[in-house]
């Protein structure tokens, strides 16, 4: 694959970058802005009602605010880049959120598993951006990472708590069985043209296939080694 050596240090410098680079960077920023907000709306905010006590409700409330804050970071970067605001808001744009958000969450154990497995997928995506050639995007990824790691850790801790009882283990396993098969699709199609473009310009470092393989192994460690449960086959 052809790769181009480039580093864009500021949003102002982006104006001098090739059109293909600008478009690719815009696509990534727009996708993060949309999906961070949509995730907060369909998973984190509704999960407050499912949480078992005020302690967990407030923790979930804070996590929802942080996810919204991630949206704001990418949204503000997008605005500086000249991306139309309405194209970064789910419901106002034709661009659909990721398919993972079509999962209908019905319970606290399902939310805990979403944090465990979906936020791990998000971490892998954000890790890839931390070597991005567009430095403003790299900086936003670096600021986002500690909170994403906490959210995934929250998923592990809450699932571990639930797994202390037989009923809880059963509920967590059922939630994994329902959610996980659709998760690898989070990383996009194999041999993706968009991904090839991102790698050509150093906006992303890894293929969708490589990130997916990394995710499958990290998910296996979480589910099988740490929780002692079974990871189903991906769809």
């Amino acid at each position: 694959m052809e790769t181009v050596s480039i580093e864009v240090k500021t949003v102002a410098e982006l104006a001098n970058a090739p059109a293909e680079y600008r478009e690719a960077a815009s696509k990534i920023v727009r996708s993060h802005a949309i999906n961070e907000l949509y995730g907060a709306q369909v998973f984190d905010e509704p999960a407050v009602a499912f949480a078992p006590t005020p302690y967990w409700k407030w923790l979930t409330c804070r996590v929802a605010m942080e996810e919204y804050g991630h949206h704001q970071r990418f949204f503000r970067l997008g605005q500086k880049m000249g991306i139309a605001p309405e194209t970064m808001i789910p419901g106002k744009t034709d661009k659909r959120p990721l398919s993972i958000f079509e999962f209908t969450m019905r319970s606290w154990p399902e939310f805990c598993v979403i944090k465990l497995l979906a936020d791990m997928a998000e971490i892998i995506q954000v890790e890839d951006l931390m070597e991005c050639t567009f430095r403003p995007l790299r900086d936003e990824a670096a600021k986002t990472m500690p909170e994403e790691k906490f959210h995934a850790g929250f998923g592990l801790r809450s699932c571990t708590e639930l797994c202390r009882t037989e009923d809880g283990r059963r509920d967590v396993q059922a939630a994994i069985d329902a959610l996980f098969p659709g998760m690898p699709a989070f990383f996009g199609q194999p041999r993706s043209k968009n991904n090839a473009l991102y790698r050509k310009w150093g906006l992303k470092q890894h293929t969708n296939e490589a990130m997916r393989a990394d995710y499958l192994e990290r998910a296996r460690v979480l589910v099988e080694d740490k929780l002692g449960l079974k990871l189903p086959a991906p769809a």
Partner: peptide, 14 residues
């Protein structure tokens, strides 16, 4: 305690 800090922050935010 990062978790308890977040719980408190979530409570006051709400």
């Amino acid at each position: 305690d990062e978790e308890l800090s977040r719980v408190a922050a979530g409570a006051v935010g709400e």
